[in-house]
Nucleic acid binder design. Structure first.
Lengths: 216, 216
DNA sequence: GCCCAAACGGACAAGGCGTCCACTTAATCT
DNA sequence: AGATTAAGTGGACGCCTTGTCCGTTTGGGC
């Protein structure tokens, strides 16, 4: 669904040519200790990101030490600290993605596009509120837009915009996602002191204005 | 107006208490070589940021060498590479700020708020287009929101939203500024290949939807 | 022309990054 | 079960950038 940036992609075939008919792929067995370490890393990293006041400053050394593994072992699974945060965040995002596809309206299918967009804003901001340190730790500027997760949000919003009959949903999709940047939410909440609920309501208003032809 | 993060702020008074009646402040004379070096630094840095494919990767060493000064001299004026980019960007932003206050409508005063917001979007995106490397080089996550320039944009948008009679202009101001993030513009333009003009039109549309009660 | 303060820049130490390689351990084969 | 093989591990190395210190130079007021 959305793919964090972890390394284990060994069955990569560079060109699409003649991959042997191995059936449904011979299980690329993961060794038990590797899985155990990965779990330890994720667990320790989550605590670390949550505890630090400045998630972007978390270093590979710190994560490795907290997880009780060597740095090279950590590098085997993740290329940099933000990749760890992304993997963590990805788990939470996947649940939301499921609700958006299969869940009940207004988040899931069935509601008018403006209401679905508003519901998505509400749900995503709630995710941000609960996992802000992870989101801040994962934010590496341009990398944010390259993730599978961003592609999912983008596709979803684009679909809603199309259903709403708006011009150029492709260009508008990213614009509609702009206000969800974790750094921006953090600034509003922590620096400006705007309460979560007001941010949510403001976003809901903008969703309705964007997609409802005539406001009440 | 907007203040880049350069060091020379010696007449700072921490508390507002009893600053000696020195008249209009004794001129804190700048030595000629200091000004010359500063100019060289800014000039060399602009070229450097523009030339590199990855503005965030520009290092203090590179800037100093390009300007023909020592690293410590560079540190005297700027704490990090992004501060140099900010100072550079600030000059361009100031011109736009002037037009927004004193210039003709729809950018300046006189036009309805929706049109002024649309005009601001157009102007800012044009700034971004012309100085994207600087904007990307200046973008240091949270720091972006702490700059005087951001405060100006925020105040302006807040004023327009208030004039537009919208609820909670304080929370909406940042939301309206979210889509202007340089990284986002870069992603749309370079990665997705959406032409500049379409991005502008999409933003103009969102501005009108947000602030015009009944679209044509 | 002298003097003092401001400015300069070479040099230093600290710390993170990314990789290599010798050792360990889990899973498979006989 | 024991041997074999390959994946997994982590200590250690070299590289790069940062941020600061301090001896030297330079500008401008007296």
């Amino acid at each position: 669904m959305s793919n964090g940036a972890e390394n284990p992609a060994p069955p990569v075939v560079l060109r699409g040519d003649l991959q042997a008919p191995t059936g449904p792929v011979a299980a690329p067995r993961q060794r038990a200790d590797a899985l155990r370490n990965r779990a330890q890393i994720l667990s320790a990293a989550e605590a670390l990101f949550t505890a630090t006041p400045h998630p972007r400053g978390v270093t590979m050394e710190q994560i490795a030490k907290a997880a009780g593994v060597g740095r090279a072992t950590l590098y085997r699974s993740f290329p940099d600290p933000s990749a760890v945060a992304m993997a963590l965040l990805d788990e939470h995002e996947k649940r939301l993605q499921g609700q958006m596809i299969y869940g009940p309206p207004p988040l899931g299918p069935g509601a008018p596009p403006g209401e679905r967009l508003a519901a998505f804003y509400m749900a995503y901001l709630d995710l941000l509120r609960r996992h802000l340190p992870l989101a801040l730790g994962a934010e590496t500027g341009p990398a944010r837009y390259e993730t599978g997760a961003y592609g999912f949000w983008r596709l979803h919003v684009r679909t809603l915009l199309t259903a709403g009959g708006v011009q150029d949903p492709d260009a508008l999709a990213d614009i509609a996602l702009g206000p969800l940047a974790p750094e921006l939410y953090h600034h509003q909440l922590k620096t400006l002191g705007i309460p979560h609920e007001r941010i949510v309501q403001a976003l809901v208003l903008s969703a309705r204005r964007l997609l409802n032809p005539t406001p009440p």
